[in-house]
Each structure stands twice: as C-alpha cells, then as structure tokens.
Design a protein around this nucleic acid. Sequence first.
DNA 1: CTGTTAGCGCATTCAG
DNA 2: CTGAATGCGCTAACAG
Lengths: 355, 355
Amino acid sequence: MRPTVHDIAAEAGVSLATVDRVLNRRPGVKAATRARVEAAISAIGYERDMAAANLAKSRVYSFLFILPSGDNSFMRGLESRVHEAVRRAAVDRVAISLVTVPPFDAASLAAALDAARELQPAGVAVVAVDAPEVEAAAMRLKEAGIPLVTLVSDLPAECRSHFAGIDNIAAGRTAGGLMRRFAGPEPGRIAVLAGSMRVIDHRERLEGFRQAVAPAGHVILPVLEAHDDPAAAERLVGALLTQEPELSGIYSLGAGNRGLIAALRLQKQARPRAVIAHELTAHTRAALEAELIDAVLNQDAGHEVRSAIRVLKARADGVAVIAAQERIRIDIFLKDNLPFAEGGDEAPAPSPDAA
Amino acid sequence: MRPTVHDIAAEAGVSLATVDRVLNRRPGVKAATRARVEAAISAIGYERDMAAANLAKSRVYSFLFILPSGDNSFMRGLESRVHEAVRRAAVDRVAISLVTVPPFDAASLAAALDAARELQPAGVAVVAVDAPEVEAAAMRLKEAGIPLVTLVSDLPAECRSHFAGIDNIAAGRTAGGLMRRFAGPEPGRIAVLAGSMRVIDHRERLEGFRQAVAPAGHVILPVLEAHDDPAAAERLVGALLTQEPELSGIYSLGAGNRGLIAALRLQKQARPRAVIAHELTAHTRAALEAELIDAVLNQDAGHEVRSAIRVLKARADGVAVIAAQERIRIDIFLKDNLPFAEGGDEAPAPSPDAA
DNA sequence: CTGTTAGCGCATTCAG
DNA sequence: CTGAATGCGCTAACAG
C-alpha cells in the first residue's frame, strides 16, 4: 500500500489538516512543524494521489483553446480535433472552451489572450502569431500564473511554458533530404512555394530546406509567395511550369496546396520529378494517391491537441510530463504508408469485469 | 455538475446499493427494479467517475509484459521503455511486472502465457511468436477473461484483443516506395536482407516491398537470411557487395543491422545507391549520420508500451480508446529528421497552485 | 497556529 | 431482494 496522508500525520505527530497545509504550501504552519512534516513526507516516500485530491476538490481543469478562423484545411482539421477532445474531456474533469480569431491578426490575438486572462482558466493553448503585442499579452498571462502552450506556431521560449508543434527547421531539412534523393543525382532547378515569409514557421522551413539542398548543387528559384491562397498558388505554379519545363522539384512549405495540386493536374506531362508538400489533408492525400505529389510532411493535429491538454494539466498540477510522448513527430507520408482516413474512436465490447 | 449515483437513486426511487448492483451487473436485483434503475441512468445521462470508483475499490491494475530475451537492440530498447513505464505506473494505480522468455521459442512463450493466467493479472502484453501452441495459450487467456495485447509482433485477430504495432505490409511498401525513388529511374538489382522468413513480420514486409518495387522493373535478388545475427549479416552482405558491384539498393527488413553496417563501412566505395533498414537504434542512428544508410523505418517502442497499457486499462474498464492515439505510426527517419537521443522525462517547475 | 469533522463519488460490508 | 452505514485518500470549512 502506498503511504497516505494519515501515515505522514502519524509519522510527524500532527493532524491531517496540518499535513494538508504543508502539502499545498498554505500559510499558517510554524516553520518547525512544517520541517517535521516535510521530513516525514520524504522519509516515508509519500506521493500524493491526484485522483483522490481532485475528487475531494471537485476540481475541474478549465482550458481555453484559441485558433485562427478562415478556411485553411489544416486549421479546420485542428479545430475538429479540439472538438473531439471537448467531447472526451468531461471524464477527465477538464472543461475546454474554444474561440477563434482572424488569422495572422496580431491585435485580435492579443485581445483574445487578454480576454482569456480575465476568465482565469487553468491553462491556455494558442496557435501563435509572433508579434510584439502577442508576446506582451503572453507575458501578462505568465504573470497571472496561467500556463500557456503554443500550438503549431511558436512564440519565443520565455513567453510560453511549452510548444506543441514540430521543429520547422528540421522539417525543412527533411524536405530537402527527400528532394535531393527524389530529384536524382544531377543538379537541377527547384521551386519553393510559400505562404508568407512573414510567418516564422515558413522562414524556418525554408532555412532548413536550403541547408539540405544547397550542398547538392541544386538551384533554388526565387520563392513564390501565395499567401496560403489556393487561387494565387494555382496561378503562380501554372506560370512556373510553363516557364521552367526542366524543373526538377517543387517544395510547397505553406498552405494553399489545393492550388498547387490543381496546377499540377492541368499540366501532368510537365510534372517535375519531385513534389513535396506539408500537412496531410483531404487534398494532399488525394494528390499523393494520384501521384501528383510524392511526399507529404505532416504534423499530427490530434497528437498536438492531446499533448497540449496533457501538458497544461501537468503544469497545473506541477508534475512532470513524459518528454518522449510530447515530442511532435515530423511524419513523412508517401502513398505507401497513408493511414486509414480519419475515423472516430473505437467501440469496444464493454466487458463486465475482468480481474 | 455531472450526475452521480445519488441522482440515479433519487430518480429511480431506490438506494445507492441497488444502483451500484445494476451498475456493476451484479445479481440480486428484481428485473423490474433493474429496469427502473437503467431507465434512470440513461434518462439523466449518467457516466461513472472511474477515478472515484477506483479510489473506493483501492483498485490496482496488474499487468504483465512478456518480452523476448537476447541481445536484439530493439527488444532491449523496448524492455527499457517497459521499465520506464513501471516507474511511472504507481501513480496511475497500475502495477506492471515483466518477464522474458527465449526469443522465437514458442514452447517457452506458451508456458509463460499459461503461467501468467495463473497469476490472474488484469491484462497481459506480449511480443508474440505465431505458433499453434502460442495461439492455444492465448485462447486460454481469453477464456479466462484476461485481455491480451500483442506488442510489435502479432497473432491472429481472434487470439488477442489488440495489436500494438505497425502494419508490416505497409512498412514493406513504404520501404519499396523509398527504394524506387532513391535508386533512380532506371531498373536495377536490389538485395533483401531478412532475419528469418519464418517470422510473419518479415514475410509481410517482404510482400509489401515486392508490391512497391516490382512495378518499377527492378530485380529483387534471392533473399539473404541472416537470422538476426550480426556476424552472419556481415558475411552475407560482404559477399554480396563484391559479387554485385552494380547493386542499386539493399533493404534490411529484420534485425542484425550491426553486421550490415560493418560490411558497408568496409566497402564504402561499393555502396549501393539506396540502403534502407528497420528500427532506429544506436547503430542505425550512427549509420544514418555517417550516410551509410539512407533511411530507417521505425516503430516507436515507447509509444507501443504506453499504448499497450492504455488499451489494457480501457479493456479492463470496458471503455473505448482513442483509435487515432493507439495507431502506431511507421516512422521514416532520414539523417535530417532524427529526434534527439533518447532522454528522460522533463522536469517542470512545480507551480504552487494555478487556478 | 493546530486539530476535528464532514464530505467528494463510489463500492461494500452487514442488517433488514 | 433491498437499504443504511462505513471508508478509499484527500480537501475544506470550522472550531479550539
């Protein structure tokens, strides 16, 4: 049997209330008594039973997710992962609310963070836009003692407690490594399609990509900025494919892949040897299967949401997380290892009572 | 506030004890009463608070892991992931024991499963060897009502409740897809290094690999069986490299990669264009960094262990799992997206009490 | 400053 | 067959 508060009380010769006070760092205990209790705690190797504590407190963790609005497929997928989490949350005593703000709008995001602070949630998760007003609002949250987890898109480390997302430099390098091998040994010309170079994720991916591709002698054409807009992407890529018939690869490091895919479909004969994009959505998945795209780098939105919740809970409780479990992988999908289409949860046979 | 047993009792006009009897499907309740209670339960949308239930029961889930002994790097890594889980387990009321049996030894494994059954654990996880006596022992566990999760290596679906491992056919296809692209457009000769064709995982990987590689016109040389033995692998690959100077690729689908790597290191000039192996270990990691291997397909042993525990717990409780969370990915590692070396857990600042 | 007491939601004796 | 009472490990009034 694991030791309980009673064991501590007996060992230290005090009452349960006093033990509870020192366990929860509450005032009103003489220093000497506190020391005795703490000695007892470590002597018998006590560890608090969080489930029992939460039961007694009728505690519910209230978390707030702040996501960008708009029709970005990845973000909408992320939102539906949050909704799934909301449904599951009750059984774990967590209540999740969700608000959306206009994408890339630093002022709105900062306002949302300030509004969040007023609500005094147990934690906040946000798809960040790295701008001074957002950083300032994040610091205000920190001062209010509210843990903040950045999701997908990060802020400087001192502004948040944890980042649930991928290493974008490594992702760019990975795309570059695949590009080098897919495009073949002889140096060629490679195009990069980006959302906006103002977003840090995109800059980092480009940087990593350059690191990996440059040594092989390939030429990287001037970056095409489509601002995550499918129509713009289609126009730019269409023009590219006619101007550069010998193109050996395209790396699409942002959103707006619908446009890229449409342009490739129109000119299938002129398709470069290697096309690599980010985020597995219905569109990129179909393009992989149709062999219009060769590889998709992905971050698992479901994992990111679950991880954010676990980390916020751990922060609220002041306990450690399993680092390996919270590392978001850079998934590489080829048409050969596509997971089954997004499904709901499993429905097991409710066994009466095994053991 | 979520409804509790008291609410059910009030709604149905019975006592707590009766509610408890129908909740836990225990006898001693008149059919009519039972019906009233069940009506009340679904009327108010009751969901049991597992944390409170476990507290009242002082329940501890006892799970048993059965792993192969031997010096296979992947299996030893798996074992250390189990040890980590053992350490963390107490706080979740789970007690994990671990036993090892000689690798590929069906009789010993079957005996271990039977011994496990005697202990009446709440669940068993096993790296299976698919043999008749093992299947029989698995069925006996099932009849005893003890959930069984296969880990890494599967059994027929009717013998176990869940498989925590990768889809090996898809893994083979993935290796083939990479091979086709890495080896270049012109058809070439490709070697396959296997452990033993008697293991189902290896047969499946080969099958998937063939599916993906054959259409491109490559020739797959007769499979080299090294029985997961580094020395044998080194000999076989050494001979191969001298006999086949024009080799375009090697796919190592089993263990014993140390030997493969040693042979490649010795004859670096004769290195084929594409070398693909399985499982990220210290050896394959170093070989990726040294560019002796181009890609490593991996299954995350830590994820597999955590998943097995979650699934066993869910089975014991008769609740659903999050399917997406329990799907084990086929990770693709290039030198560009290697994760940081295996580390311990994070040490957070224990915040006093946030919200 | 410290101790007593009554629950949190549920399971389980033991009477009726 | 059914109900009242007690306790799991912990927290939170309320007294002293």
